[in-house]
Amino acid sequence: MAETTPLIRQPLFVVAVFGAAILGAGLALVTGRLAGKDRAEVAQCAMAAETLDRLRPLARGELAAVKVPSTPQPLPPLSFEGPDGRRLTLADFKGRTVLLNLWATWCAPCRQEMPALDALQADLGGDDFEVVAVNIDTRDPEKPQEWLKQAGITRLAHYRDPQAKIFQELKSAGKAFGMPTTLVIGPEGCAVAELAGPAEWHSQDAVAFVRAALGR
């Protein structure tokens, strides 16, 4: 029996080492891919750095609470429904500057700033810019559209996420702390400004800020 024990253990040891090597190689491959993706996102966002230089001195007055990060920020793959019910992601807006606003009918500050967002879209909206106001009401899907109609909001497309996952994803990324939540996203798909709370988005300060984000 003393002679057979090593013969049994040796193959098991070899299998264990071989399995560990395969596992390690797999983890290294996955880690490498993730690291490569992170590096690509950082490099892509670095292209928006000069936008931050234009925005920082303009975060004042009506937009004094806006935070302009030290570097452009990658965002999670946010998704929501478009006016036709089709699922969209931020990638669908790549090449355009977006003012992403999360709102709900139960949020009084959200309702208060919607007319200004509507006016901002009317003045600056076009091929290179859109106010993307995403409603996150989780009940009564007809209520947001009814409220927009009653409030005379006619220029904003009706985007929505009835599961409110977009808020949770931004919260997990440290980009949402309450309602409303607003991000300015450059054409590279990276956040160049963020705001927790309402603002007068059609004020002189806000229009100048968005124009600077557009490089106008």
Results as ranks from 00 to 15, higher is better:
L170W: 12
F80Y: 13
F209Y: 02
E3H: 13
K37G: 01
E41N: 01
N135Y: 09
C107V: 05
V68M: 04
A176S: 08
F80K: 01
T89Y: 15
V30Y: 00
W147F: 14
P11I: 01
G186F: 00
R96P: 01
A151E: 11
G178Y: 08
G197T: 06
F209N: 04
A64C: 07
W201T: 02
A2T: 09
W201S: 02
R60P: 04
Q10F: 13
M1V: 13
N135W: 14
F209V: 05
P83R: 01
S79I: 03
T51E: 06
Q150P: 00
R87S: 07
D161I: 12
R111K: 10
R211E: 15
G126T: 01
P76A: 13
M114K: 08
E113V: 04
W147M: 11
E142W: 13
E200D: 09
L7H: 13
A176T: 09
I153N: 02
I166L: 10
L88T: 05
A212S: 08
R9N: 07
G125T: 02
E62K: 14
Q150F: 09
V68P: 06
L7W: 15
L23I: 10
P83K: 02
R54L: 08
P6W: 15
A21P: 03
E81Q: 13
D128T: 11
G215K: 07
T154Y: 08
F177M: 10
P72R: 01
H158G: 04
A173V: 11
V15R: 00
Q10R: 13
A2L: 10
H158P: 10
L90H: 01
T105R: 07
D84C: 04
L55Q: 02
A108K: 03
R111P: 00
D137S: 06
E62F: 06
T182M: 05
G19E: 11
G125Y: 12
L29E: 03
G24E: 03
G95C: 02
A40I: 15
T181M: 11
D84E: 08
A35F: 03
P187Y: 03
I8P: 09
R39N: 04
W201Q: 00
T138L: 12
Q73K: 02
P72S: 05
F167A: 10
